[in-house]
Design a protein around this nucleic acid. Sequence first.
DNA 1: AATGAATGAGACTTCATTCAT
DNA 2: GATGAATGAAGTCTCATTCAT
Lengths: 197, 197, 197, 197
Amino acid sequence: MYKRLRLKDKRQSIIDAAIVLFSEKGFHNTRTPELAKKAGVSEGTLYNYFINKDDILIKSFEYYSEQVLNKLKSIEDDCDSARGKIENFVIAHINTYVENKSMARFVLLELRQSPEFIKKYPEYRPVKVFMDHLTSLIQEAVDQGEYRKDLDVETFTTMLMGYMDYSMTKWLLLDTELDPVELGMKFKDIVHNGILA
Amino acid sequence: MYKRLRLKDKRQSIIDAAIVLFSEKGFHNTRTPELAKKAGVSEGTLYNYFINKDDILIKSFEYYSEQVLNKLKSIEDDCDSARGKIENFVIAHINTYVENKSMARFVLLELRQSPEFIKKYPEYRPVKVFMDHLTSLIQEAVDQGEYRKDLDVETFTTMLMGYMDYSMTKWLLLDTELDPVELGMKFKDIVHNGILA
Amino acid sequence: MYKRLRLKDKRQSIIDAAIVLFSEKGFHNTRTPELAKKAGVSEGTLYNYFINKDDILIKSFEYYSEQVLNKLKSIEDDCDSARGKIENFVIAHINTYVENKSMARFVLLELRQSPEFIKKYPEYRPVKVFMDHLTSLIQEAVDQGEYRKDLDVETFTTMLMGYMDYSMTKWLLLDTELDPVELGMKFKDIVHNGILA
Amino acid sequence: MYKRLRLKDKRQSIIDAAIVLFSEKGFHNTRTPELAKKAGVSEGTLYNYFINKDDILIKSFEYYSEQVLNKLKSIEDDCDSARGKIENFVIAHINTYVENKSMARFVLLELRQSPEFIKKYPEYRPVKVFMDHLTSLIQEAVDQGEYRKDLDVETFTTMLMGYMDYSMTKWLLLDTELDPVELGMKFKDIVHNGILA
DNA sequence: AATGAATGAGACTTCATTCAT
DNA sequence: GATGAATGAAGTCTCATTCAT
């Protein structure tokens, strides 16, 4: 029991170090000895917990997925109206990244668009689970008459995801500030009121 | 004159090969001998035209930038109304990528995750030129009374850019079809009519 | 303790191999894999102990310097008269090389022509320590009245060093025999008795 | 005739450039394109006049040998007494180097002790022709009764050559001044008068 | 004869991984 | 389980040499 815990500690500290380093320097520019050092373990220990360097990337991602799924569940029932759920979702989604910038970089820059990774795990796209959830929330809002009947759900989902993604990418690359609530309100203003004069 | 042409050919064929390979396999998984072979030159020739492998990445991007700037200029005067210009811009922007999928992957997927690249171009330039242009078009539409006076121009720009970017990323990663005109119309429907019931 | 010893062994075996190979084939004609093989280590191990190939040259020389300094100290107090000390010094100096022909070639032939080396050690140190010591011994002989008062100490030092150096270079290049005692006696005969009829 | 001259010009300018560059940077650190540029010819032209890079080294040396042989002949008959000839020889020998420091470095540092070169051309040692000449002059002095009958001619030759060589090496490496006449006189004082009190 | 762009063998070096301790 | 020195395959890049012009 005690050993299991310590074992879990090492595994976890490797994943934590990996997410930080991969996000800072990129997967290919992170050296395994450096990763071991940051995790506070020896180089050999990496291979007691993971098959190889690729495996560390994949398992780091799986850890991330687990985290965000938990997050998703925790905010699911906070609100009754579909519109309110969507608003909560957007803010929670962005907050997840804002609270952990390393992980944000890891997912948004390094991982999300890694062709090798996507090729190996097409279904693991971290975005997919979000998109599907968001799509279902939007469909719910349409079904409940909160959004108009002929709204193209897929297009609106893409707009919202793209808006969040793009805003966060700008935040990461240009190192600016990011206020989730304000971001959501500005978006809402446009899609609710339209842009026309 | 003859020599200059051949010289330009080799340099260009290396860039062309680089864009294809980097987009297909990623920068780090592309081997220089493989790149040379694809370009139809010897390994040594790479280093007659470029400082090192990194330089090939940078110069390939600069070539891309030049291309898109030319594209921008060519569509500038096609339409009188600001709204028309924006619609033309969106379609032309997406078409640039659709017409050259390799370059699309190169810019949208590979370039974004390259730390060397980000270090050299911290302002994320390829997109910046577009964004700035788009922002000015939207501002023009507001000024001309085509869009409402209190429209948050920056937010709308980000929405539109994010929507295009996200749609194209999905297109690339999931290998689906992409119709620029339809894409633009769906977006217009939402931002013109709003989403509310 | 055990590991430390093995560690020192590897480092030393690389230096030993380097001195032999550099002296036999020259620095530039010695390939690192060959050097690794001769040292009984892998190619990668070279770079666990040294920064690069140049560093192996430098460190080999520094090892040599340490060796000869120890030699110098060991012969310092063997004799009371300054003249005797000088004679001992000459014989010991030459013996150092005769006993280790690889190191002799390394220092006398290879090291002298290495621009990297000269740049790092502009004062031509390996010889300087000797020269300075020899100069002080000769000065002592003058002070004690064993040599004449108006002897140009520097010139005599240069003569003696040059004579030894030249004799040894001939020995190395022409692969002849070398008897340190005989060499010293022949020199003594001339400088004691002069050359005139 | 005109072409022959121009041809000789190119060949000579390559040799001149080689002697300078080889002496400054060493044979292995001199790049052939750089050598071509310094000589004012194209890279390909090098191979119209020389077999390969090694050949340029060898031919540069042969050119040097020719030069010094001419020098030797020109001073041969300047003096009647053997002692005078030796003195003239020493001064002329050193002057050859002082007047052309590049060539001095080339011969004394780069070429003389290049194992590859010596291995290929053991008889071409630039020193040999000098030594032999000097030996014969000393022998002449002994025969003429100017030096004592039992003088060890070889030892004295080695002393004198070593003294000159060592003095010049110090001059080159430490970048000091060198006065051939003074150098000769200091040497003469010691070997004529001896060192003893 | 002169050119210099092109060549490609081969150099040095890196770094993910192993395994004896 | 933990270590980290050792490994060696494989990478990028250099540079003497060639040959079409």
